[in-house]
Write a protein that binds this DNA or RNA. Structure first.
Lengths: 155, 155
DNA sequence: CGTGAAATATGTATCGT
DNA sequence: ACGATACATATTTCACG
């Protein structure tokens, strides 16, 4: 799908503020509301706009630990990787999962309220996988930056 | 700030779909539109609702590499850490930054279009810091999960 | 917190380029 | 194919009970 300058400006606005009204968006990018609306719909349908969400401040909702978990698997078998991925997808504690190259196989970003819940998570998801060889946990007391925006192409 | 069951239900809905109309939200949680609106405003003002955004599919916008970068600093000085954090905050390639405990000091999630831009980033942000001792890059060809939702307290 | 009415916004049909 | 205008529908927002 081709994106022109107007589409990119629309995406830029929406990435920064998803609650902007269609009218305000239209005037910002220099279109009529109906033309703007058509483009936003097209961007949604194409999947470039994946979803619209509200971001919450985790630490204002209670105790919060952010864990960066590096997982090393026993054997490089696709089917075994798939099983692990499926568990990671299903686990609500896992907020992000990256499959990486090198010594480590997966990196997870996990959010839990406390250590006890983290240990429960490890038992349920990590130790439960027979192909999991070992993992290392980096404990974060602070998420200093969290930016969901993507750098858009110049044109 | 105290959150009751209704607030939590509102947050749950909005985390899943920020584009829901206030009317639909109100009927979902069992309130009148005006009561719902007042609560949403209060949640915004309190900072629990941080922002509302549209999430884009990075890979549909062009080539995308996700890097997990583990950074080790030379000395544990707060002022020197602050300087690094400031640079990480300012760098558009850095989407997330976690200060962690243990052998590693910071973990960054970096998004770039290609290796060339990653190297430019390393020069500009990592090597440029005299207190940066070394770093390790885990390259991800795939972001398998990305969930911005937070687990809400039971009550 | 709910109701109802005024102010805004959205969505669609139609026309013009 | 794309955008503008205008109109009908839906939603937001606020004063008041």
């Amino acid at each position: 799908m081709h994106l022109d300058r107007l589409d990119l400006r629309i995406l830029d606005c929406l990435q920064n503020d998803g609650s902007i009204t269609n009218q305000a968006l239209a005037s910002k990018v220099g279109l009529s509301p109906s033309a703007s609306l058509k483009r936003v719909r097209r961007l949604r349908e194409s999947g470039i706009i994946e979803r619209e969400v509200v971001l919450l401040a985790p630490e204002k909702l209670g105790p919060t630990l952010h864990m960066v978990v590096e997982v090393i698997m026993e054997r490089d078998h696709k089917a075994l990787y798939q099983r692990f991925l499926k568990q990671a997808q299903a686990a609500p504690e896992v907020k992000q999962c990256y499959q990486v190259t090198g010594e480590v196989d997966f990196v997870l970003i996990v959010i839990v309220a406390d250590m006890e819940r983290y240990e429960l998570f490890c038992d349920r998801v990590l130790y439960a996988d027979p192909n999991m060889r070992k993992f290392r946990t980096l404990i974060s007391r602070k998420r200093d930056k969290f930016d969901t925006r993507v750098t858009l192409p110049d044109e």
